[in-house]
Computed example of a mutant assay.
Amino acid sequence: MRRAAAVGAGALLAFAAVAVTSAEERPETGTGTGTGAGDDTEKRTVPDFLGLGLWRVFTRLDRRTRLDVHDVSGRDRRVLWPSRWQVCTQYPEAGADLDRRTTVMIGVVRRGETCPPRVRTARR
């Protein structure tokens, strides 16, 4: 059983590396995915992630962006497989400027669960 778990985790990490590489090759304006010497002068903004799958967060944010992901269902679960979670909250809000010091905080629940009402309306 341990070997199967290790192989599964290794496959996920390999898939994540491929997805991030392909996302970097696609230039998107305003999402912070550009590469090159002019990145520091390029204005980057936070995309709108509400209602999307957590995997989209990883593929749309620049790899240098600090990211804090936590379960907002109140069960304090670990978020291990991004494809099984959906975004309920995000801070900063969509359209906010994104710089080196910004940490994007994402609140998630498992797919198929509804976002808690107190979380849906509250923004920090």
Results as ranks from 00 to 15, higher is better:
Thr21Lys: 13
Ser22Gly: 08
Ser22Lys: 14
Ser22Ile: 09
Ser22Met: 12
Glu24Cys: 12
Glu24Trp: 15
Glu24Gly: 14
Glu24Asp: 08
Arg26His: 00
Arg26Thr: 00
Pro27Met: 04
Glu28Tyr: 11
Glu28Asp: 13
Thr29Ala: 15
Thr29Asn: 07
Gly30His: 02
Gly30Cys: 00
Gly32Phe: 13
Gly32Asn: 01
Thr33Gln: 15
Thr33Gly: 14
Gly34His: 03
Gly34Ile: 02
Thr35Arg: 13
Gly36Ala: 07
Ala37Trp: 15
Ala37Val: 06
Gly38Cys: 03
Gly38Lys: 10
Gly38Glu: 08
Asp39Ala: 08
Asp39His: 11
Asp39Lys: 14
Asp40Ile: 06
Asp40Ser: 10
Asp40Ala: 10
Thr41Asn: 05
Thr41Ala: 09
Thr41Trp: 12
Thr41Ser: 11
Glu42Lys: 05
Lys43Phe: 07
Lys43Ala: 06
Lys43Arg: 11
Lys43Gly: 02
Lys43Met: 01
Arg44Ile: 06
Arg44Tyr: 04
Thr45Ala: 05
Thr45Cys: 06
Val46Met: 07
Pro47Leu: 02
Pro47Thr: 01
Asp48Pro: 00
Asp48Leu: 04
Asp48Glu: 06
Phe49Thr: 00
Phe49Pro: 01
Phe49Glu: 00
Gly51Met: 06
Gly51His: 10
Leu52Trp: 05
Leu52Asn: 07
Leu52Gly: 03
Leu52Lys: 10
Gly53Asp: 06
Gly53Pro: 02
Gly53Ile: 06
Leu54Ile: 04
Leu54Thr: 13
Leu54Phe: 14
Trp55Ser: 13
Trp55Gln: 14
Trp55Pro: 03
Arg56Leu: 11
Val57Ile: 08
Val57Leu: 09
Val57Asn: 09
Phe58Gly: 11
Thr59Tyr: 02
Thr59Met: 12
Thr59Arg: 09
Arg60Val: 02
Arg60Ala: 08
Asp62Cys: 15
Arg63Met: 07
Arg63Gln: 07
Arg64Gly: 13
Thr65Pro: 11
Leu67Gly: 09
Leu67Phe: 12
Leu67Tyr: 15
Leu67Lys: 15
